[in-house]
C-alpha cells in the first residue's frame, strides 16, 4: 500500500459529490444566463457536464493508475450510481420550486396577508390550470402525443418512471396496479 493508492481511493470517494457540485454550479450558471427560460435544458446541461467529468476521472483512475481493473470498473459503477441518485434528489428538490402545488398555494396566501377564502384560492389557481400546465409540459417534452383533438400515450421517460412508481406501490404498499397492461402492451408495440 502506498500514498498513491490512498490518494486514488480518496479521489474515488469524493469524485461523485464533487461532480454533483460541478453539475449544480453549471446548472445555476446556465439557468441564470438564460433568465430561467430553459430550466429543463439547464438541468440537462448540468447533468451531462457532471457525468462527463466523472467518466473522465473514472477512466483516468481505471486505465492510468496501477489498479485492479475489475475493482476499478465496479468502483466507477458505484460512483456513477451515486452521481445519478444525488442528481435525481437535487432535481426533485428544485422541481418543488417549479411545480409544487403547495408552494403555489403558499405563494398566493403570502400575497394576501388578510387571508383567502378557499374559493378565492380556486379563482386564482384551479384544476384547469393544473391540467393545462401539465399537458403543455408533457406534450412539449415529447412524453405524450397530441393530434389536435386527443392526447395519446407513448413510450417516454415519464411513462417508464410511472411504471416503476406503480410497481413500487404494488410491491411495498400492496396496492393494485391502476393502469391497463393491455394498453401498455399496445403502446410498446406501436412505438
Amino acid at each position: 500500500m502506498n500514498d498513491n493508492h490512498i490518494l486514488s481511493e480518496l479521489i474515488q470517494l469524493s469524485a461523485a459529490p464533487i461532480c454533483v457540485i460541478v453539475n449544480i454550479f453549471i446548472q445555476i450558471c446556465y439557468a441564470r444566463c438564460k433568465d430561467g427560460k430553459s430550466y429543463l435544458k439547464s438541468v440537462a446541461v448540468g447533468f451531462i457536464t457532471g457525468i462527463l467529468l466523472l467518466t473522465a476521472v473514472e477512466l483516468y483512475l481505471i486505465f492510468l493508475q496501477d489498479a485492479d481493473f475489475l475493482n476499478g470498473v465496479f468502483l466507477s459503477l458505484t460512483n456513477l450510481i451515486i452521481y445519478f441518485l444525488i442528481s435525481l434528489g437535487y432535481f426533485s428538490f428544485i422541481n418543488v420550486a417549479v411545480s409544487a402545488i403547495r408552494v403555489r398555494i403558499l405563494s398566493e396566501l403570502s400575497e394576501n396577508p388578510v387571508g383567502m377564502m378557499e374559493n378565492e384560492i380556486y379563482d386564482l389557481y384551479n384544476s384547469e390550470e393544473i391540467v393545462d400546465k401539465r399537458l403543455g409540459k408533457l406534450c412539449n417534452g415529447g412524453q405524450i402525443s397530441f393530434d389536435g383533438k386527443k392526447y395519446y400515450p407513448k413510450i417516454s421517460l415519464t411513462l417508464i418512471m410511472f411504471i416503476i412508481l406503480e410497481s413500487i406501490r404494488f410491491i411495498v404498499l400492496n396496492k393494485r396496479i391502476r393502469f391497463s397492461t393491455s394498453n401498455l402492451i399496445i403502446v410498446f408495440k406501436n412505438r
Binding site: 405524450i144 383533438k149 386527443k150 400515450p153 410511472f162 399496445i186 403502446v187
Partner: peptide, 11 residues
Amino acid sequence: LLQILNSGKDG
C-alpha cells in the same frame, strides 16, 4: 398520464 394511458389507442 394514467388517464391517457388507460385511454389506449382511442386517445
